[in-house]
Simulated assay, not measured.
Amino acid sequence: MKSLMTLCFVLTGLFLKAQPVAGYQVGDIAKDFSLKNVDGKTVSLSDFKTAKGFIVIFTCNTCPVANAYEQRIIELNTKYSKLDYPVIAVNPNDPGVQPGDSFEKMQERATEKGYAFPYLLDPDHLVTKRFGATKTPHVFILQKTSAGNRVSYIGAIDNDTEGTNTGRTNYVEEAVNALATGQKPATSTTKAVGCAIKWKKS
């Protein structure tokens, strides 16, 4: 973990001033949102009529930690979209600060890696701040209920940032598996580990 985090600091500007972000807590109802997908179309959670919930992941092109998790994010969507818990990826970074996270670069990345899930740009950080995301990657699992999309888990994908821990704890998988069987996740919050979000310069 240390080597990736050091690289993240050096290459992607963890030194940038952090923005105050409060955001959702477990149990809150998340508002719907509309953001532009890499295919040019606007995507909202309400578009997914048969979804039972969502794995909302704030991620990006440029963070070494997000890159280390990229294949695992692809695999999460492959596995859990079948259970009606699709991945919704959101790039929170400002391309003026991090050019590698421009919309065009997002399109290139999604095509190159064959993303089968939405990859959305949040140009003004409105959705990012509403959720309270601070890192890439940062996960919010939503469960669709009669009251709305309830936040059921917030934090990391697992405890294996480097991808080398054979005994990893898969927080997101365990949480979705519990929700899919009508139970509450045993672990509902963990610490997100990754690169700081690149906010617009004020």
Rank of each mutant, 00 (worst) to 15 (best):
T134V: 13
Y80C: 00
L76W: 01
K52V: 09
P92T: 12
D124W: 09
H138V: 06
I88F: 06
T145H: 06
K52S: 07
T136E: 15
A116P: 07
N77H: 13
A116M: 12
G100E: 03
P123Y: 14
I55Y: 03
K113Y: 10
P137Q: 12
K105Y: 08
A66W: 04
P95C: 02
T128S: 11
K113H: 09
G53M: 00
D84I: 14
P118N: 14
K79S: 04
L142P: 06
M106A: 12
D122V: 01
P92N: 11
I55S: 05
Q71W: 10
D94K: 06
K79D: 10
V90N: 08
K129A: 07
Q98D: 14
K135A: 02
C63S: 14
D124V: 09
T128W: 06
D94T: 08
D101F: 02
D84A: 11
P92K: 08
P118D: 12
T50H: 15
N67S: 12
A116S: 12
F131G: 03
P64E: 07
T59I: 07
T128M: 08
E112K: 15
S146Q: 15
K82L: 15
K144P: 00
T136K: 09
G96A: 13
N77P: 08
L142C: 14
S146D: 12
D101K: 03
N67G: 08
P64Q: 11
V90K: 04
V65K: 07
K79W: 00
R109H: 13
K49P: 01
A133S: 11
F48W: 15
L121M: 15
I88K: 06
F58P: 04
Y119K: 05
P137N: 01
V65F: 10
T50F: 10
L121T: 09
G114A: 01
A89H: 01
P118Q: 10
L76K: 05
F117R: 05
N93I: 09
E70M: 13
Y119D: 14
R130L: 12
K135Y: 07
C63I: 11
T50E: 15
V87L: 03
F58R: 02
E70C: 12
M106F: 02
N77K: 02
L83E: 13
P123S: 13
E75M: 13
T62S: 15
F140S: 11
L76Y: 08
F117Q: 09
K49A: 13
C63H: 06
L121K: 14
E75K: 10
G96C: 06
E112D: 13
F54I: 09
V139Q: 00
L120C: 15
F58M: 02
V127F: 10
V87S: 03
K82R: 08
L120I: 08
A110K: 04
